[in-house]
Computed example of a mutant assay.
Amino acid sequence: MFGYAVVKFGDIASITRGASPRPIKRYITSSEQGINWIKIGDAGINTKYITQTAERITIEGAEKSRKVKKGDFILSNSMSFGRPYILQIDGCIHDGWLSISDFEDYFVPDYLYHLLSSDSLQNEMGKKASFGGAIQNLNAEIVRSLELQIPSIDEQRRIIDLLDKFEVICNDLQSGIPAEIEKRQKQYEYYRDKLLSFKEL
């Protein structure tokens, strides 16, 4: 549908920084009417989804924050630097997160997840966010400036299928001894970066 066009991420998606109501303690609530307050601790180890939160904030607090919805991506701009997560819940994010939404006309979510996780984009974000060798916060403008190739939706689904198979093997601790798992992890990373570079396919 879109071939292999190269576009700036910010031209095809909405990318914004979160916001924190302050002092945050004033807005934390135990009420069921509260809004999910998404923090880095809500992201599980080796998972791509955020499914629940430990805390909620009041409706007033939500108005001072950044609302996100199920299906949006969020990236940490400090801890777990640049690591993408897909939301399976609605909620609000503080200023330690960036949100990515409105990309569905161009990317299948699982493909975008693999693309943002690739070494090439992770390294690019790291370089653009560094100054004098020190890592700075990843800001929305850096992510908007990323140049991405957009393969056809069919090609995206083919790549997803291949990478998901490798990911299942890598994450299944029952599938073999640690050395074998490490070997499969390296294979996954090799093919992920090869498939997402669009060179010598």
Score class of each variant (00 low, 15 high):
T51Y: 01
T51S: 12
Q52D: 14
A54V: 12
E55V: 00
E55M: 02
R56S: 06
I57P: 07
I57F: 09
I57E: 02
T58Q: 04
I59C: 00
I59F: 07
E60A: 12
G61L: 13
G61Y: 12
A62M: 12
A62V: 11
E63V: 00
K64W: 01
S65H: 04
R66C: 11
R66F: 10
R66K: 15
K67M: 09
V68D: 13
K69T: 11
K70L: 03
K70Q: 15
K70I: 11
G71D: 12
D72H: 15
I74T: 05
I74R: 01
L75T: 03
L75K: 02
L75M: 06
L75R: 02
S76N: 12
S76V: 04
S76W: 03
S76F: 04
N77Y: 07
S78R: 14
M79E: 14
M79H: 03
M79Y: 05
M79N: 06
M79F: 08
S80D: 13
S80V: 00
F81Y: 11
F81V: 11
G82K: 02
R83H: 13
P84V: 09
P84H: 10
Y85M: 12
I86M: 13
I86H: 02
I86V: 15
L87C: 06
Q88K: 15
Q88H: 12
Q88D: 15
I89G: 10
G91P: 04
G91I: 12
C92H: 01
H94K: 03
H94E: 01
D95H: 10
G96I: 10
G96Q: 09
W97N: 07
L98H: 10
L98F: 12
S99T: 14
S99M: 13
I100G: 01
I100R: 03
I100Y: 07
I100H: 06
I100T: 07
I100C: 05
S101E: 02
S101G: 02
D102P: 02
D102V: 06
F103S: 07
F103L: 02
F103I: 13
E104W: 07
Y106D: 03
Y106G: 08
Y106C: 06
F107C: 07
V108E: 14
